[in-house]
Design a binder for these strands. Structure first.
Lengths: 334, 334
DNA sequence: CTGTTAGCGCCTTCAC
DNA sequence: GTGAAGGCGCTAACAG
């Protein structure tokens, strides 16, 4: 029992032919005698040979692998990944997801990751929440929920502005007037749009914007917790709209610390609808972002691009939907 | 603006040195003059160069990348992936997840995937729900929830037997006597253990095992639906324990088709606690498998193995826990 | 300290 | 129909 993995040489030696012949037989190229091919394939089976993705990608133009580049595997990206996988079902493509954890703190992780894999390991790339993008002409690239204005890149994202308007309006309809906002990272597109939607809904309702009701949580659990403490510390709002679910969960944590009952004393709305939002008790009211569809459509877009098509729609905006659950209620009687 | 990605040659030419020097400078090897290194690094920055993972992995022994091989990206594997990512946080390892979608129907997908990546693209592999395993001596391998008896492979899995006993006993305590079982794939270890747990709990309760109350759903939504139809068609049970959540969701779908109310007419319990289980209404009562921890511990085990340690514990069994939700109730008065 | 040499495993010409 | 040779981008030895 060989402990080393079989290479094309092993197969060639076992079948008594040259490596070139093995390569042709395996890839079904023209110019190999029927009998020879049979013999080679039998050895391939026996030795458990499969061409090294690494080696073949250095020579071959195509690998049949689509890359999904993410900053990290967390709830949001995991949902996208499931969608991509579903979109590729039945296609001849494998999926390779790469999280450049080592550098994802530094800006430009996506450029590094892309550069590392792009040497033809993958035939196309789907980048999730990229911040800066150098459109490489090498392979098709699709951006999902880009953090900056999507340059010329085909993009799939959901309606942050509309979702934020809907969430805020819902709180207004519940009678809330003092509605806090826990903002995301000021440099991110989605964060800015959600804040804009919040302000728009306030304006629509004739409520003056109060800067003291806005704190920045940067989409990070810890920073969000600090921001929430500030927000809930003084003359606190009766409701908080958080720019994403992770931040909303932080708000709930702080509320518990402070002995505030949710939703009796405080209503909370998030954004994304990550699995953790519905799993906890009370379940989080949030704006559902169709993460699964985001991934699926990105996969379809990538396949179209690879096929050389030029889709009319290369900038796709998917609708969001408010999912009322248990963390929101009418404003307590004053 | 160069449209082609920069290679080490481009950097070398730009900096006026040889490719070897660039390689050394980039990798911080000993033996490069300070000034030269500075100049090279400046060019690296300017050209946006990053070494090709593909090319370097062909020469170098280590890549700093841990591979997670999954049959597909679905709820279970996505949770594992999040756990692995968490376990690797702060470590110097990147994560590469690979779904051999093209062949995951065929047995031995894991062998193929491993063979393809193992040419040193990854320093260690975590295989999720592998069926057959050829222990390669090349890199450390950890199995998560293996489908067959774990050979000599380091393994992390959860207590299928105990969880099944607990789930069934819970139904018994609710007064159910006619408890159906929707089985998984007969060839899989976890499936067998769950069935064994079901039967054990029946025996403990002094309830005779009735083969007519058992159908095989193979863990596939469609097959599970058919099995559920059979199960609920004739003299139906008052409760069904499904071998995993996907199957349980199929049971709920069929129950709805048949106009059965859950939990009033029928109680349903699943296994896994995938996000979809708690997201739906009524929320599914299920046995929670600590998927996140499964992944995290697998990552830690892999790192220990890579460090050359030989962990005392290489076969780890994590406890499961029943999560009562809204799909179970006391047996309806007859 | 720096450049040259020799492959890693595979696929693609191009002779034979 | 088959094999030998070259090279993808990179790094580890060894020379200079």
């Amino acid at each position: 029992m060989p402990t080393r993995r079989a290479t094309i040489h092993d197969v060639a030696a076992a079948a008594g032919v040259s490596v070139a012949t093995v390569s042709k037989a395996v890839n079904g190229r023209y110019g190999v005698a029927e009998g020879t091919a049979q013999r080679v394939l039998a050895e391939v089976e026996r030795l458990g040979y499969a061409s090294s993705l690494v080696a073949s990608s250095m020579r071959a133009r195509q690998t049949g692998v689509i890359g999904v580049l993410v900053p990290d595997f967390e709830p949001f990206t995991a949902e996208i990944l499931k969608g991509v996988s579903a979109g590729l079902a039945g296609s001849p493509y494998d999926v390779l997801a790469y999280a450049g954890v080592r550098h994802h703190a530094s800006a430009g992780w996506e450029k590094r990751s892309l550069q590392r894999l792009s040497g033809t390991l993958i035939d196309a790339a789907i980048m999730v929440t990229p911040t800066v993008i150098a459109p490489s002409a090498e392979i098709p690239i699709v951006a999902v929920d880009p953090h900056t204005g999507h340059g010329d890149l085909p993009t799939v994202e959901s309606d942050s502005f509309g979702g934020a308007v809907e969430a805020t309006r819902y709180l207004v309809e519940l009678g809330h007037r003092r509605i806090g906002f826990l903002a995301g990272r000021p440099d991110l597109r989605s964060a800015k749009l959600r804040e804009a939607g919040y302000r728009q809904a306030l304006t629509d309702a004739g409520i003056d914007f109060d800067p003291r009701l806005v704190e920045v949580g940067r989409y990070e659990p810890e920073a969000a917790g600090d921001a929430a403490r500030t927000l809930l510390g003084g003359a606190r709002p009766t409701a908080v709209f958080a720019a994403n679910d992770l931040s909303a969960l932080a708000v709930l944590g702080v509320a518990a610390e402070l002995g505030l009952r949710v939703p009796e004393d405080l209503s909370v709305v998030g954004f994304d609808d990550i699995p953790e939002a519905s799993r906890r008790l009370p379940a989080l009211t949030t704006v559902r972002q169709p993460m699964h569809r985001l991934g699926r459509i990105a996969a379809e877009l990538a396949m179209a691009l690879m096929a050389g098509e030029t889709p009319a729609q290369t900038s796709i905006l998917l609708p969001t939907r408010l999912v009322p659950r248990a963390t929101t209620a009418a404003v307590p009687a004053a």
